[in-house]
Design a protein around this nucleic acid. Structure first.
Length: 954
RNA sequence: GCGAGAGUGGCGGAAUUGGCAGACGCGCUGGACUUAGGAUCCAGUCCCGAAAGGGGUGCAGGUUCAAAUCCUGUCUCUCGCACCA
């Protein structure tokens, strides 16, 4: 085996690791534990792309390194295997989703094993395994059995939910209904995002700008019975507990923004019992008096319109109110004269998709209801409008509009000529036109000083005003401080076949209609498996779940003489990934989702690596489930992932693009704009141009742009794009392994740049690290020999001081870089080592072995092969990590730069341990320095021993 | 529009956190070996300049003995959010 040939050594060592169970992880950690987790992949039909091995290699390096440090390392892998594509494939071809899924998993498993990752494959699981989703269903039952106790700030079993006396009096059905209303898993008849093209309902977060996130298909809103999870109950804890996590600030911020906590006040505006036009001063006075006595009611009555505002300090500037078209008061508030217009408006709004309500609708729309409400702070009657810029799903679904200090209200007020009253003086900030704001010609949302807000408040700073008026409103029973979240409850049901069935039965009456009573499938009867015999209808395109057509023996159940129908919705793909990290710890347990002893020993995950695309949803959902499991005593901690790192996306190769107009003439890239439908036009004329891909040698750099080499007046675009099938720039890991080997792929992905950065792929870069691995091979082995033999330069010799320094410097640098996940610089240091030792005619065996061990986490196959050739019988996976001796790293003499006026002028060599005085003396003794200092007055001498000297002269 | 991050050679990126800018790799140039080179080895490679020297980390200022690094302003790019009151 003379030359480095990954195609032979890589399978050899993969087989060795597998047969020796080299990476089997013990049931409980021995010594220090480390749980390192990759975001498990969805096994798509396309196989692995090069983005997967990026994070997987990073974690694998950490795991291999820490095993050599003696830690117990948990490093599992599995499959997030439910998903729509397998079901759509079934509709097209008739192949059952399970068969497609198993085939895809087999391919993914093959590809991952090909890359030599040190997973404990005995722990492999798929979310589609019945032994796995049995426990996913179990956790759903926990959610179903839990209510959130606000007073205690935790989830508790539904049996402990206090039942109000009046509910109790109404009988068992009322009690059951009351419980159902408080469960963390509850049903709701709600408008949902129905996507006909995908044949499913999507969660709000899966809809982006009115089209589906996956595929960009149109989405319409239709009412449907749905399962919801009450994640909003945990919003506060989900936000606060971010503080204790070692996650990047940007990801925490993303989650914080998503949760969207805001503080402000709820305020009731009096509308009277019969809210017709005009104001009703007498009734208002009576209301004010009674409120002073009763205080602010928990639920708003019919006599008021309750709003939520973050700016209670602008109450005096409220000149109108707006309710959402779906607000329950719309009909009551609408006067007969306005009825026709309002009803038409609400109908239109209902039919509008989210897309129409946001992007395209730059112009505000709305209708006057004909009614007025009375502003509690000044008794003024203000008109109530209905408009779709107010969302029913946030706050109370109604707002007080303060056009002077809210951009949206300002636009609306201008549109409909409503009065604008400034109540905050923005002050002398040069960024705002103060006079325009005060005159109501411009909107300012900035804090400032109160004006036009009665003697009691004028002159107060915004924050102080907010505090004071909230107190006053509370005392008057007209308002109270309130907190709101952008986060909505989680739409948890899907109209899919290929998902976890809900372990829920719906009771049927004699006529076969649901009674509304639910029955949970007992935990010991789980799993509820999917029906085996199903045909998939390609034309199926109604919101009705496919399981509605399941065989009757699956669909209907009889218990104690009562007939039940199974729930036919299924769970979303997120469900399985919400808790897989727990199951990895104890994957074959058939008595519990995880043994508590094992859970305590291994949790939390110490390092979780994955793509930033899961920064919000997956991580938020998993944290939510974990907190519920914690509250209910199934896990020992309340956060699952102690440290999170997001790998950056790998883009395709850098591309140069020029633009040609219809006559074939080049157009400079700076004059070209892209259009919405991914075409390109000349900015000025709007004429179509077509993009032309250019070879790298057809362009050159000029200034900070690239231009055509043969026509430098034409600028071209240069950038790397996201890999996509349509662009044709996808890199296939199978091909890279075939050409260069897995070690080269691993090493290249780590050498590209920092783990968290977005980086363009470069095939030439792969061949670069391949060259490095070849040099490592030749440094230690004789590639001209017929059999495996050491290079004759490798000897059992003592390293020279210089060689020892190189070895120990490298050990130190690589070790420190590993601790910071700085793999790119660690590799660079090993390259320096190899560059050095290739020039040495005597290469001490100890130094060679040191490098092999350092390299082994990065390029494990090559390292094992070299280790064996160096005379070792067993794998190096559990060899102790090399240690370094600081004393051997120290240089005897160091070169110190000498600056004059901060400019580098000379260098002098001084003993490494020279102090400031000695260093300064050496500097002055340098002839070059003396010459430059000639005739100058030294004003200041700055000396950092061992680093530099700077003379400030006059 | 709001929020976050990033701008360093032809390219990917280093820089012990304020102390020699460009480590390491690719590419490129020249050379050696070779039937051959998309193999290997040697030398060179930030820019201007023959050299001495000068300039240089998106741009403009500032702080400092000293700035890629800190501060102010500004431009560009990437990502996220987007009527959340």
């Amino acid at each position: 085996m003379p030359r480095y040939n990954p195609a032979t050594i890589e399978p050899k060592w993969q087989t060795y690791w597998e047969t020796h169970r080299t990476f089997a992880c013990p049931r409980l950690p021995k010594g220090r534990k480390l749980y390192v987790l990759d975001m498990f992949p969805y096994p798509s039909g396309d196989g692995l792309h090069v983005g997967h091995p990026e994070g997987y290699t990073a974690t694998d390096i950490v795991c291999r390194w820490r095993r050599m440090l003696g830690d117990s390392v948990m490093h599992p892998m599995g499959w997030d295997a439910f998903g729509l594509p397998a079901e759509q494939h079934a509709k097209r071809t008739g192949t059952p989703p399970r068969a497609t899924t198993e085939r895809n998993i087999a391919n993914f498993r093959r590809q991952l094993k090909m890359l030599g990752f040190s997973y404990d494959w005995d722990r492999e699981l798929a979310t589609t395994d019945t032994d796995y989703f049995r426990w996913t269903q179990f956790i759903f039952l926990v959610l179903f059995d839990t209510w959130y106790d606000e007073a205690q700030g935790r989830g508790r079993t539904i049996a402990e939910l206090p039942i109000p006396a009046d509910v109790k009096h109404q009988g068992d059905d009322a009690v059951q209904r009351y419980r159902d209303e408080h469960r963390l898993a509850y049903q709701l008849e709600a408008p949902v995002n129905w996507c006909p093209a995908l044949g499913t309902v999507l969660a709000n977060e899966e809809v982006q700008g009115g089209v589906s996130e996956r595929g960009g298909h149109p989405v319409t809103r239709i009412p449907l019975r749905q399962w919801m999870l009450r994640i909003t109950a945990y919003a506060d804890r989900l936000e606060k507990d971010l503080d204790k996590l070692d996650w990047s600030e940007s990801i925490k911020l993303l989650q914080r923004n998503w949760i969207g906590r805001s503080t402000g006040a709820e305020v009731d505006f009096f509308i009277g019992a019969q809210p017709l036009a005009a104001s009703q001063p007498k009734e208002f006075d009576a209301w004010v008096k009674s409120r002073r006595k009763t205080g602010f009611p928990r639920k708003a009555g019919d006599d008021v319109l309750r709003v939520y505002t973050t700016r209670p300090d602008t109450l005096f500037g409220a000149t109108y109110m707006v309710v959402a078209p779906e607000h329950p008061f719309v009909e009551r508030l609408t006067t007969p004269e306005q009825a026709k217009a309002v009803r038409a408006y609400c109908d239109r709004a209902a039919r509008k998709s989210d897309l129409d309500r946001t992007d395209l609708a730059k112009e505000k729309t709305g209708e006057f209801t004909g009614s007025h409400a009375i502003n509690p702070v000044n008794g003024e009657a203000i008109p109530i409008w209905v408009a779709d810029y107010v969302l029913i799903s946030y706050g109370t679904g109604a707002i007080m509009a303060v056009p002077a200090h809210d951009t949206r209200d300002f636009e609306f007020a201008q549109q409909f000529k409503l009065p604008i009253v400034a109540v905050v003086d923005p002050g002398d900030d040069p960024a705002v036109d103060r006079d325009a704001v005060l005159a109501g010609r411009q909107c300012s949302i900035a804090d400032g000083v109160a004006i036009n807000s009665s003697d009691a408040y004028d002159g107060l700073a915004t924050s102080e005003f907010k505090r004071k008026i909230t107190e006053d409103l509370t005392a008057a029973g007209q308002g109270r401080g309130a907190v709101n979240y952008k986060l909505r409850d989680w739409l948890f049901s899907r109209q899919h076949f290929w998902g976890e069935p809900f372990p829920i039965l719906h009771e049927l009456d004699a006529a076969g209609h649901p009674t509304g009573r639910l029955r949970a499938v007992p935990a010991n009867e789980l799993p509820v498996d999917l029906p085996a015999a199903m045909t998939f209808d390609a034309a199926h395109a109604s919101p009705e779940p496919p399981l509605e057509r399941a065989p009757a023996d699956w669909l209907y159940v009889e218990i104690d003489g009562k007939r039940y129908k199974r729930e036919t919705n299924s769970m979303p793909q997120w469900a399985g990934s919400c808790w897989y990290y727990l199951r990895f710890l104890d994957p074959r347990n058939d008595r519990a989702l995880v043994d508590p002893e094992i859970e305590r020993a291994w949790m939390p995950v110490d390092l979780y690596v994955g793509g930033a695309e899961h920064a919000v949803l997956h991580l938020l959902y998993a944290r939510f489930w974990h907190k519920v499991l914690f509250d209910r005593g199934y896990v020992s901690g309340d956060e699952p992932f102690a440290r999170l790192v997001n790998q950056g996306m790998i883009l395709g190769e850098m591309e140069f693009t020029g633009y040609q107009d219809s006559s074939g003439d080049w157009v400079s890239a700076s004059q070209v704009a892209s259009t919405a439908d991914s075409g390109f036009v000349v900015k000025k004329t709007g004429a179509q141009v077509k993009p032309v891909k250019l070879a790298a040698d057809a362009v050159e750099k000029q200034g900070d742009a690239f231009v055509l080499k043969n026509n430098p007046t034409v600028a071209v675009d240069s950038r790397a794009y996201k890999m996509s099938k349509s662009r044709g720039n996808v890199v296939n890991p199978d091909q890279v392994v075939a050409d260069f080997g897995a070690d080269s792929l691993r090493l290249y992905e780590m050498f590209m740049g920092p783990l968290e950065a977005v980086k363009p792929w470069s095939m030439e870069g792969v061949s670069g690290v391949y060259g490095f691995l070849n040099r490592v091979w030749r440094m230690i082995l004789d590639e001209r020999a017929d059999a495996v033999a050491l290079n004759e330069a490798v000897a059992d010799a003592e390293p020279t001081p210089e060689q020892a320094r190189m070895l120990h410097k490298t050990i130190k640098a690589v070790t420190e870089d590993l601790g910071q996940l700085a793999f790119n610089t660690a590799i660079a240091r090993m390259m320096e080592f190899v560059n050095f030792f290739l020039k040495e005619s005597v290469r001490p065996r100890a130094a060679m072995e040191g490098l092999v061990l350092l390299l082994s986490p990065f390029a494990p196959h090559l390292a094992e092969e070299l280790w064996q050739t160096l005379g070792h019988e067993k794998t190096l996976a559990h060899e102790p990590w090399p240690s370094f001796d600081e004393a051997l790293i120290k240089e005897d003499v160091v070169e110190v730069p000498i600056q004059i006026q901060g400019k580098l002028r000379a260098r002098v060599e001084v003993p490494a341990e020279a102090d400031a005085a000695a260093t300064l003396a050496a500097a002055k003794a340098s002839p070059r320095v003396a010459e430059l200092l000639e005739g100058r007055t030294i004003v200041k001498e700055v000396v950092i021993p061992g680093r530099m000297v700077n003379f400030v002269v006059r």
